[in-house]
Amino acid sequence: MTDENIIESNVESTKKSKKVLVLFAHPSQNRSEVNVPLFHEAKMNKHVTAVDLYAEYPDFNIDIEREQQRLIDHDVVVFMFPLYWYSTPSILKEWQDLVLEYGFAYGQDGTALKDKLFLCALSAGGKEEAYQTDSYNYYTIRQLLQPLEQMAQVTHMTYIAPFAIFGSRTAREEHRVVEHRGKWTTLLNKLTTNTLNLEKAMRIENLADLCTSQGE
């Protein structure tokens, strides 16, 4: 390979790589069986910026300009959280209310987030079968997350399926933490190398399933 080809190859690789921002929100980390290990996994990826929102803003005094700059600097935005009463922990709602301003994220001239990827990485204490339209919770995870999907639509981001982990309260005793970390690492690698099949990622119910598909 000539020097010119090496340079072209490196440039092409740079074009393909994506910077991922993981906004982690867990108010009770000492009780976490899945989220904290996954957050630590994210911090090990050099193409990922992993932010612990409760650690950075214990008083909820969110630095709007700092957070907006983080969004500008990244290609993929991930909300990572345990599902609390079918929604996010409170600091993520506060973050949305303050950071996603008119004129920045939406409205006239509000195109700072246009074409960035957005997804949720979440854990649910209940089993997957409980999150069905004919079961205990009456709704699927994707249905429960529709307010966040609409947020992505309004802010011109590309919404893809959530990375959802079920049965998180018993992950350790069922020896599934390593499995969950493996799927999460696979997803991060696909996101940062820009090799995720977006067509499938937008229509599938759970990205964790896509990360175990053959040939993906």
Rank of each mutant, 00 (worst) to 15 (best):
Q143H: 08
E179C: 01
V51T: 12
Q29Y: 02
T192D: 02
W184F: 15
G126C: 00
W184Y: 15
H180F: 15
I6T: 11
E129L: 11
G126L: 06
A55L: 14
R70F: 04
R172D: 15
V78W: 01
D52S: 13
K18A: 10
K93Q: 06
E216T: 05
A161P: 05
P162N: 06
G167Q: 12
S213C: 04
K116G: 04
L196G: 00
E101Y: 00
L23T: 10
E129I: 13
Q214T: 11
Q68E: 03
I62R: 07
P58G: 07
M157F: 00
Y102T: 03
T2H: 04
A25K: 01
R203I: 03
T111L: 05
E173L: 09
L98W: 02
F39T: 00
V36M: 15
N206W: 10
V48R: 11
D109G: 03
L119C: 12
Q108T: 09
N197G: 04
G182T: 11
K46A: 14
A50R: 05
L117Y: 04
S90W: 04
Q150W: 10
V51Q: 08
N30Y: 06
N194Y: 13
T192P: 07
A105V: 05
E94W: 02
A121Q: 08
L198N: 07
D63M: 05
S28V: 13
E199W: 01
I91Q: 05
N194A: 09
H74L: 02
G110D: 09
Q29L: 07
Y159Q: 01
I7F: 08
T111S: 03
K116T: 05
Y57Q: 08
S168V: 07
N35S: 07
Y102C: 11
T186W: 10
F81E: 03
R169K: 11
R169A: 12
Y138I: 04
C211I: 08
N10A: 04
P89Q: 05
D63A: 10
H180G: 00
F24W: 04
Q150P: 02
L207G: 06
Y139E: 11
N35C: 14
Y102Q: 08
M202K: 15
A121M: 12
A112D: 09
S17W: 05
Q132C: 11
T14Y: 08
